[in-house]
Design a protein around this nucleic acid. Structure first.
Lengths: 200, 200
DNA sequence: CCAGCTTATGACACCCCGTGTCATTATGTA
DNA sequence: TACATAATGACACGGGGTGTCATAAGCTGG
């Protein structure tokens, strides 16, 4: 999600990228941990990364993106898990179970959980970062919604279900991050367990 | 919620407030509607309200507070509805129904729905305003959580339930605001209907 | 090897949000 | 009338985010 203009997509001509966005994000995370989030300015990060402030903004749309950017893979993984199974005819077994499993799969795709935990803890501490959750999780919400509607869940119910799902799973991630348990799956399972499609 | 320092709380001495915060907020809403949210600077609002920019900030903590401030009464009303009935012994009837009714009562306490609809539509259009929902609804979340735990809902479940509740009801408000139906209650009912305390 | 193209880069300037300070003014109470 | 309290607004400042522009770096075709 680091705003990467055209990183891996075949670029036939032009000057290639010379800045390692992931390395810069990692550096920023380190600086945030050392000096604090709001005590570290974008100029500080740029200076430390030996690049210009404007170049920093070219790779990360905002300061918050330096933190939230790393969550891209998780969302992408659960998106993939949600997109794969085609909808069967009629009302299939349990749509909630499908959502749950996709989210678990997405979580399992995270390379290093320790970094993610640090990221989430940093987010939890700062309202400014916290509030970005709505937009950062937007694609996941959209993905879940199409999953539900494709399986016959009526429109308004699907919307509310997705909104509730995002809220609950985000809370689950936060609870996991606050503790020391290695596996986030139980938290996510419990969060999804709070939902019901039947309208009670 | 307009940051009011000491508006109605008996102030024995000192110069009384001479700025009508509600009027300023209404003016700001009008300017936002006319010129657009980000096209209207705090200086514009202050100039139009015939006050200084700093004085504006003394009444509203942020630009977003000019919009979100008006939601205070709703949250306060549902808080009151949630606080009134004392928990009975053992597992009482239906905690979700209690939550649902409190939210409906809160919605019914809104003086003029038209203004609220405009406000929510404005919020829907601007990610910056949208993202404030998390913090703005924080008190409501906390209130619902204590309601649930006081009625025997175990801790982690209560957390997830509240997170889901906030997400779903906010989505319900947004759906209501996007349409023309006069009563938000059906939307809210449907949103709460997506939850379940039983863990499926 | 050179010419020309594309694109990243960084310097500069700018707007605006939000905050801190401070002198001034207005309103109450003793 | 003196005093305390607090609102007001002027000024300055840090910092986020954006636009512009000249320059440098790499690729590709001749």
């Amino acid at each position: 999600m680091p705003t990467e203009a055209l990183k891996n997509t075949a670029r036939p001509t032009g000057r290639p990228v010379s800045i390692d966005a992931d390395a810069v994000a990692a550096l920023a995370l380190r600086l945030f941990a050392e000096r604090g989030y709001e005590q570290t300015s974008m100029e500080d990060i740029a200076r430390e990364a030996r690049i210009g402030r404007k170049s920093l903004y070219r790779h990360f749309a905002s300061k918050a993106d330096l933190v939230w950017g790393g969550t891209g893979p998780v969302i992408e993984a659960s998106r993939h898990a949600l997109a794969s199974p085609p909808p069967a005819e009629g009302t299939d077994t349990d749509v909630l179970a499908g959502l749950r499993e996709a989210i678990i799969v997405g979580a399992a795709a995270i390379p290093d959980l320790a970094v993610t935990r640090g990221r989430l803890r940093l987010i939890a501490e700062h309202p400014d970062l916290m509030s970005r959750s709505y937009e950062s999780l937007g694609s996941q919400r959209e993905q879940a919604r199409s999953y539900l509607t494709a399986r016959g869940v009526p429109e308004p119910t699907a919307r509310y279900l997705c909104a509730a799902l995002i809220g609950a799973t985000f809370e689950a991630w936060m609870q996991w991050a606050a503790g020391d348990e290695p596996d986030p799956a139980p938290y996510l399972r419990a969060a999804v367990g709070v939902l019901s499609v039947g309208g009670r």
